[in-house]
């Protein structure tokens, strides 16, 4: 019996590559859970674009009901410089909302990987559950989907593009003091 991973003309990556990509995403999640932000930055390509649009509810008759479009308000629409600045804040001793530390868990699932558009790049879909806790009763749950471009380089895999789409139009939290 042959197992084919071809769906709608696209071929999923082979098992060994899938394993590497999945391990990359799991490692990333663990680094974020443990506030190893410099190590996290090192997993990103220099030309990273990290985008988390704000979600709008529109009727299907308007723009096909699209919940997000480029160039509009967003939570993140960052290149490397802005991501570094965000990390710089996390590391300040006066980042009051991080002391005592926020307790994070990032759960990654539904990983699905294909060959990307450029040589050596992969298109990787995943879903995430992010649970953050502070003080006694501040528990914030975010669930969404990600579309990544992950690039194979001489130094290993690097995240080159990420789009994060959450389900909430009204963010049920006072902030997003993490990366997703």
């Amino acid at each position: 019996m042959t197992i084919t991973t071809e769906i709608a003309g696209r071929s999923a990556v082979d098992a060994a590559t899938a394993y590497q990509l999945e391990t990359f995403l799991k490692r990333e999640a663990r680094l974020l859970d443990t506030e190893r932000y410099d190590d996290w930055l090192a997993m990103l390509a220099d030309d990273i674009h990290y985008w988390m649009p704000s979600i709008e509810s529109r009727r299907r008759a308007n723009n096909g009901g699209a919940t997000h479009l480029p160039g509009r308000m967003a939570y993140f629409d960052d290149f490397m410089e802005h991501l570094q600045k965000r990390v710089a804040r996390f590391k300040q001793p006066t980042a009051w909302a991080e002391d005592p530390p926020t307790r994070h868990t990032h759960v990654i699932s539904n990983v699905e990987a294909y060959a990307g558009e450029a040589e050596g790049e992969y298109l990787v879909y995943s879903t995430f559950v992010n649970y953050r806790s502070r003080v006694e009763t501040d528990n914030d749950l975010l669930i969404g989907r990600r579309t990544d471009v992950i690039r194979a380089t001489q130094d290993g895999l690097r995240l080159a593009r990420r789009k994060i789409v959450i389900t909430q139009t009204l963010l049920q939290a006072k902030n997003i003091n993490t990366f997703l």
Binding site: G71, F76, H82, R89, A97, R134, L171, K174, N175
Partner: peptide
């Protein structure tokens, strides 16, 4: 305009490096 869009987002939005510290003050 684009610089303003990105600028307000990284400073004063729920993920902004300034606003992030306001919420807990107001809430508590």
């Amino acid at each position: 305009k684009e610089r303003y869009r990105r600028g307000t987002m990284i400073t004063f939005s729920p993920s902004g490096v300034f606003e992030m510290d306001d919420g807990e003050n107001f809430e508590y």
